[in-house]
Design a protein around this nucleic acid. Structure first.
Lengths: 191, 191
DNA sequence: TGACAATTAGACCAATCGGTCTAGTTTGCT
DNA sequence: AGCAAACTAGACCGATTGGTCTAATTGTCA
């Protein structure tokens, strides 16, 4: 049985990174709250950066789960699948107290300093956007979309605007920016 | 004549905060690059937080300038005034090497930690959004806008989506997310 | 010029940072 | 059982952090 210590640290790290961000979260604080000694931390992780990058990986496991759940549901039209995905994500935000998205948070804080984080976060956004693109391409073929829209750009746009709405949601501790963004987007996109 | 030292520090701080963010920018680093001794810093500012908050104020002076320039130009229709504003802002981003928006950066990093920053940044976004709202209200009265859109929500939406595009622009070091967002927004809004 | 305030100058400080190191403990395999 | 690897435990470390303090300098107005 693999040690649960590492997983515990990552799961706690997910929460702490969301509120504190990277720089403000001290390794000592993390370990104190986890009840784990320092030796364990540096046994499981190369260092703080490695830890945060693996926390992002864990965050993406959750995102992938939501993506699979949303796009595996054949009872919905493609556009509705996308909307459903965001509703699940928004539900998660609610559980955190509307602190926004970890990818957006770490991306903003660290993309000016660390190429590793910059590439990591950009890669994650790209994974998500490409999944949207797939659904949007199907939707377009079905005639669900307004003429002249490019699924590729439209998918990136969706991710970007969502992140902006998530930031505002974090500032206001409110879901309104999220819902308003989705309403606007889908009204503009649908045929 | 008021000391130029304080202004110098704030202007340099603007640049450094944009790339480094708050936590990663040491006071010592700032002072070293500015060629200013520590005594001066703590004479002009209460501390690091006060300094960063004043840097945001200086940032907003620039934003207000762009707002005034855009909306003072009577040769353009209201919707075009808004677009023009963002083109000026995007030009500024270009000069920085596409590092995004300072408000978005500090908002993300600090809104989970410091209520002072959270309120400050939210206040700045609100100032900008309300200016947009004014223009959108005029545009609506002129019949430039699609039916059923609310200038108030539409203005906030614009700010939020722009910030999301700015983050992606920072990750990619590219203006594309910014332009794509504007194209989409104005196509969806105009009648 | 004299005097007082504004500013500069930088040595200094306690606290905290991420990270290392060695010693002990537990685990799993043979 | 016996042994090696995985893991825990926490004292310890140099570097850096934001911030303080006193002294010297500069500017300003009477």
């Amino acid at each position: 049985m693999a040690s649960t210590t590492k997983q515990d640290l990552l799961e706690l790290g997910l929460k702490l990174l969301l509120t504190h961000g990277y720089a403000d979260l001290g390794v000592a604080t993390l370990l104190e709250q986890a009840g784990v000694p320092k030796g364990s931390f540096y046994h499981h992780f190369e260092g703080k950066e490695d830890f945060a990058l693996q926390a992002i990986d864990l965050y993406m496991v959750g995102v992938q789960g939501a993506l699979d759940a949303a796009f595996g549901d054949d009872g919905r039209e493609p556009v509705e699948q996308i909307r459903h995905f965001f509703e699940m994500v928004a539900e998660g935000y609610k559980g955190d107290g509307y602190l926004g998205c970890l990818l957006g948070g770490l991306g903003q804080e660290l993309s000016g300093i660390s190429p590793a984080f910059r590439k990591k976060v950009e890669g994650c956004f790209n994974v998500i956007a490409r999944r949207f693109e797939k659904a949007l391409t199907i939707a377009k073929a079905r005639g669900d979309l307004r003429a002249g829209v490019e699924p590729h750009d439209l998918a990136d746009l969706l991710v970007n605007c969502w992140e902006g709405a998530a930031l505002r949601s974090r500032l206001r501790r409110s879901p309104n920016p999220l819902n308003q963004m989705l309403d606007f987007y889908f009204a503009a996109v649908r045929s």
